[in-house]
Design a protein around this nucleic acid. Sequence first.
DNA 1: TGAAATGTTGGGGCG
DNA 2: ACGCCCCAACATTTC
Length: 457
Amino acid sequence: MGRVTPSVLWFRRDLRLRDNPALLAAVSAAGGDGVVPLFVVDPALWGPAGPSRRAYLSASLRALDEALQDGGGRLVVRHGDPVEVVPALTAEVGAGSVHVAADFGPHGRARDERVEKALAEQEVSFERLGSPYAVAPGTVLNGSGKPYQVFTPFSRAWREHGWHEPAGLPARSAAWRSAPGRDFPDADVPDGLALPSAGEEAARQRWEAFLERVEDYAEDRDRPDRDGTSRMSPHLKWGEIHPRTLLADLADHTGKGATTYRNELAWREFYADVLWNRPDSAREYYRPELAGMAYDPPTTKAFEAWQEGRTGYPVVDAGMRQLRATGWMHNRVRMIVASFLVKDLHVEWQHGARHFLHWLVDGDLASNNHGWQWTAGSGTDASPFFRVFNPTTQGRKFDPAGDYVRRWVPELADLSAKEVHDPSARADGPPEGYPPPVVDHAEERREALDRYEEVRR
DNA sequence: TGAAATGTTGGGGCG
DNA sequence: ACGCCCCAACATTTC
């Protein structure tokens, strides 16, 4: 064993202390010399983030700092390009190693390679241990050693591969060591925003509450008018809880709800795996055939109406307003608004994906963008292009009483269940202040199918 | 994790 | 009693 020096634990999207393999490694590398917990606010990621995303991350960092303070530590927060910030810190504190959970996204991969190289020049090692997934992307391969392109066979192989048990907290508490840098990004939550609670403790509480009713998940998950989803997505996105923990807790449950939920976790891992194998699929059509279709530019009034929740289609508007008000949107509604943008407004999925990533507190490149590709019919396992959601029918089916619409579209608060999903059909038209439909769904559906037919020939 | 168009069936009104 | 039509309900096909 060589000399013992402090180590740096560089947090990125793993903002927790429990079941954090990189933390365990950092503690063991540092001996008694101390672990410096670091977060770097990287302008490349901070820049494009919208107010809710920023506020959520900021709150999560503060929660992490508080948890560290319980053990006598403080989170070091610095701003700038990690390729400069991280080596500067290691030099300052004389650290011998930097520990991270591996990042499998295109930006993170490239960044980590540059940081690793810069650290090597000062003879500091860069240690990747663990990942934000139960099974690391790139691990699950088919019989011929290639990555899966279809979800179902992937998920079978993924389950068979299995995962570790959660690791818990370090056996002996870390000797934290600090350094200057307490410049937390602005935590102000803009007026009117109601964000989910952030942090490891909030994640834990939400998960335990969900476990109580996981058996209803298969039934309720498609109902935006109910609190039937887990709402774990922001916590998973920022690593406030690890999917291993969820999977371990679910192992006691054999019902349909738990099986369905495990499957949703598998989708998350599948999309991360796809992105790892095809980093370009975050921006480019996974299936290039659909890239040649005729689309409309995202500069129309209709696109603006979609972003702001003024399309005249109640369930679409409710979803888009929920997104801006809470940084989150129910998954069923995400599919409906996405279908509307791509099929009714003929706008390319990338523009919708960007809008989502700007506002969502759970916005994850792999899940978000591949979800959009699924809707656009251009992804792995994609929904066929001709599968066009009817926003009125979808609204009636999944929000039968209209409670979800009334919650987010106050102009429609007085409408009956019968009228609320099609307010323009009323004798005197939509109520004061609510717009008529921005496009005619039946017409635009035909238009979308025509354009599809064009590119298919 | 679609919806619309089209086809089929069967009950019931009615001459 | 019978044929005819309407149409709801359901199934199949197509995009």
